[in-house]
Amino acid sequence: MQRPNRVDSDRGPSVSLRLRDTSLGWDNSELVRNLSFDVPAGTWTCLLGESGVGKSTLLRTIAGLIEPRATTQVLADDGAPVAGRVAFMAQQDLLLPWLSAADNVALGARLRGERTDAARVRDLLERTGIAARGDARPGKLSGGERQRVALARTLMEDRPIVLMDEPFSALDAITRVELQALAFELLAGRTVVMVTHDPFEALRLATGVHVLSPGDNGSHIAMVPPGNPLRDPTDPSLRDSYRQIMEALGKRGMTGSPASAAA
């Protein structure tokens, strides 16, 4: 699909991230220690792991929303600070119910007291496929439409790093697949870190997959599924990757293959 490219023109080069000696956990208990891995520039990196292991905390740390614990280092390859260059997209769309869809897309400028680039808002609403709903309040939008607005809001900021916390998990299966493809297309060239619970989603979108487990860096499993995203997660060549993820997640003899799980 040919679309005007002017939205992405001023973003600058992609940024890769390095996480070093990251520790995750609550006040006095550390679940994950010395976690280190790289997030390559301009690709999707997916984080999986059991609930409560600290995936969301990791995203919040990268975003600079919480103080990094102890030795944690989040570094960008160009040496500039990471915080301030990230856009954040969560499981809840986080649309403000009192603003129209278009005003929600322009939220960043509104909050910073800047002038809203109305043409850019229109362009993004069009590219996310909700141009007709720009004046509607979030309460009048479907779950899929709301997440499209959230995606447009994320793109509006034009940040090189995009952090996503299960952005598609609340959607029905068809809408989810549509939005995965749309997000993948529109976020091309950006460095994306996405937390997900869905191995298929990771296999579809990710260049690198990391399964976090409690303990030292050694118990975290990194893999690079074969082929290039956007993959078809039911492709037989992904069977081994799927099994690897499920084993890393389950660790108690959980079995299954894409074929049987997809059936």
Partner: peptide
């Protein structure tokens, strides 16, 4: 909603802007 405040902070909003444009409404 804590997510709104997180979002506003990543968008570079000041404390006053968060109070006026998010917490107040």
């Amino acid at each position: 909603e804590p997510g709104w405040i997180d979002l506003a902070r990543t968008l570079g909003a000041s404390k006053a802007a968060i109070l006026r444009q998010i917490r107040l409404p």
